[in-house]
Simulated scan of single mutants.
Amino acid sequence: MSVLAAIAVLAVLILVHEFGHFIAARSQGIYVNRFSLGFGPVIWKYQGTQTEYAIRAFPLGGFVGFPDDDPDSDIPPNDPNLLRNRPILDRAIVISAGVIANLIFAYFMLVVQLGLVGLPQLDYQPGVLVIPVNEQSVAYQAGIREGDIILAVNGQKIPASDQSIVLLTKEIQNHPNQPLELTIKRQNQQLSQQLTPKQGKDGKGFVGINLFPNSKPVLGANGKPVYRHPNPIEIASIAANRFQQLCVGTLQGFGQLVTNFQQTVGQVSGPVNIVKIGAKLAADDSKNLLSFAAIISINLAVINILPLPALDGGQLAFLLIEGLLGKPLPAKIQDGVMQTGLVFLLGLGIFLIVKETTQLDWIQKLFQ
Rank of each mutant, 00 (worst) to 15 (best):
130 V>K: 01
316 L>M: 13
226 V>E: 11
334 Q>F: 06
260 N>G: 04
119 L>E: 14
42 V>L: 09
16 V>E: 02
58 F>C: 02
122 L>V: 14
259 T>G: 11
292 F>A: 00
40 G>C: 02
117 V>K: 14
361 D>Q: 07
315 Q>I: 01
215 S>I: 15
99 V>Q: 12
74 D>Q: 15
137 S>T: 03
230 P>V: 05
363 I>S: 06
306 L>P: 09
26 R>H: 05
112 V>G: 08
131 I>G: 00
332 K>W: 15
195 L>R: 09
105 F>L: 09
83 L>E: 08
47 Q>V: 12
331 A>C: 06
9 V>C: 00
120 P>N: 14
169 T>A: 05
147 G>T: 08
15 L>G: 10
283 A>L: 04
360 L>F: 04
269 S>D: 11
68 D>E: 02
204 K>F: 14
185 K>P: 01
220 G>S: 10
143 G>H: 04
151 L>P: 04
318 F>I: 05
142 A>V: 14
353 I>F: 12
124 Y>H: 13
251 L>H: 04
312 D>Y: 01
314 G>K: 12
235 I>M: 10
35 F>N: 14
198 K>N: 08
311 L>T: 04
203 G>F: 03
114 L>R: 06
10 L>T: 07
126 P>Y: 07
130 V>S: 03
197 P>H: 12
31 Y>I: 06
166 V>W: 05
362 W>M: 11
208 G>V: 04
222 N>C: 08
145 R>C: 02
278 G>A: 01
31 Y>D: 12
264 T>C: 02
227 Y>E: 13
223 G>P: 10
214 N>M: 08
10 L>I: 10
337 V>Q: 09
46 Y>K: 15
314 G>L: 08
91 R>P: 05
312 D>Q: 01
99 V>M: 11
356 E>F: 01
238 I>V: 15
199 Q>V: 12
225 P>E: 13
319 L>A: 01
340 T>R: 07
81 N>A: 11
310 A>H: 03
283 A>S: 10
209 I>A: 07
134 N>W: 03
106 A>W: 11
54 A>L: 06
54 A>R: 12
173 Q>G: 05
228 R>T: 11
301 A>V: 14
110 L>H: 13
274 I>R: 02
94 V>Y: 06
88 I>P: 03
25 A>Q: 04
272 V>F: 12
35 F>Y: 15
254 F>V: 13
138 V>C: 02
264 T>D: 01
315 Q>K: 13
258 V>Y: 09
82 L>A: 14
203 G>P: 09
206 F>R: 11
218 V>Y: 11
309 P>N: 09
107 Y>W: 15
182 L>Y: 02
336 G>Q: 12
40 G>N: 05
167 L>M: 03
8 A>G: 13
314 G>S: 09
151 L>C: 01
207 V>F: 00
140 Y>I: 03
184 I>V: 14
286 S>A: 08
149 I>L: 05
24 A>E: 08
292 F>N: 00
170 K>M: 04
57 A>M: 13
155 G>V: 08
271 P>F: 07
329 L>Q: 13
